[in-house]
Design a protein around this nucleic acid. Structure first.
Lengths: 120, 120
DNA sequence: AAACACAGTACCTTTTTGGAAACCATGACA
DNA sequence: TGTCATGGTTTCCAAAAAGGTACTGTGTTT
C-alpha cells in the first residue's frame, strides 16, 4: 500500500541507490553552484574566466571542481584550445540542455517566493 | 552587458542575499530530504509516524528538523491534535503546492537520467 | 631575463549537514 | 504500579561540502 508512483524500482547512480528521481536530480545539480552554472551556460558558451567573473564570490577551486563533476556526469562539455595562454570553453551537452525547463521553473518559483515573502 | 534575465535585483531570504531565483529555490528544498518530503506530502497528508515509515533510512531528528524548516518557510502545515498519544499531521500549504510542477519534472528527469546512464 | 595571462592544482582549515543513542512528557491501559 | 504509544528534544560525533592561500606550466611580450 505504499507503491503509488515510483514502485519498487531502485535507481543506481555513481554507486549509490536512490528511491526517487528527485534524489538523483538533486545529486546532480543540488550543490551550491551547479544549478546556477548550468543556467548560465544555457544562455551562452563561456570561458573559464567568464565564469569566474559571473561567480565572483566563489573560488577558482570550487568552480573547477563543480565543472569537472558536471563534465563527468555528462552535462557539460569542456573544450580546450591548444594555445598559450590557455583557452577553455564550457558549454552544455545535449543531455545538459534537457534540464533547462527545470532550471527555468526553479528560477521563476524562487523569485516569486522571495517577492511574496518580502511583502508578508 | 551581463544583465540579461535577472538584472541587478538581489533577492533576500532569511538574511541572505541571492542573485538568482534558482538559489532561493535550492535554499528552500535543496537539502537531502526536503524535496522528497514535499513530494510525499503532495500525494497525501501524513502523520509523523507515516513519514518515519516512508523515510525509514533517516532519523526522527532529521525529519523533525526538516519539517520545522519547511513549516517556517510556509510550505508545510503542522496540525497538532490535542490527544494522547499525540497525533500530528503534516500537509502542504497553498504555497507548498505551487512547487509541485518542479518536483514532478525533477522526478521524471532524474529517472530518465538514471536509465540512460545505466545503458551507456 | 623578467613579467604576464589563463586555467588550473595541492594542501589545509572551516562550516554545514547528517546521524546514533539516550532522554522526555502524557494519558491510556493491563 | 508499570508499560506503551506518539512525537518529539538533547548531546555528542562523523562526514561532506565549501573556502583560503599558495604554487604550477608555458608561450608571448617587454
Amino acid at each position: 500500500m505504499q507503491q503509488n508512483q515510483s514502485a519498487a524500482e531502485l535507481m543506481t547512480f555513481r554507486d549509490r541507490e536512490y528511491k526517487c528521481g528527485i534524489d538523483v536530480t538533486l545529486a546532480l545539480v543540488g550543490g551550491k553552484w551547479k544549478a546556477s552554472i548550468l543556467w548560465h551556460l544555457a544562455q551562452e558558451t563561456m570561458r573559464f574566466s567568464d565564469l569566474q567573473r559571473q561567480f565572483s564570490d566563489t573560488t577558482r577551486k570550487m568552480l573547477t571542481q563543480q565543472l569537472r563533476e558536471l563534465e563527468m556526469d555528462g552535462l557539460v562539455n569542456r573544450k580546450v584550445y591548444p594555445q598559450v595562454p590557455p583557452k577553455v570553453e564550457y558549454s552544455l551537452t545535449e543531455q545538459g540542455r534537457t534540464i533547462f525547463p527545470i532550471l527555468e521553473l526553479m528560477c521563476d518559483w524562487g523569485r516569486n517566493y522571495a517577492q511574496a515573502g518580502n511583502q508578508a
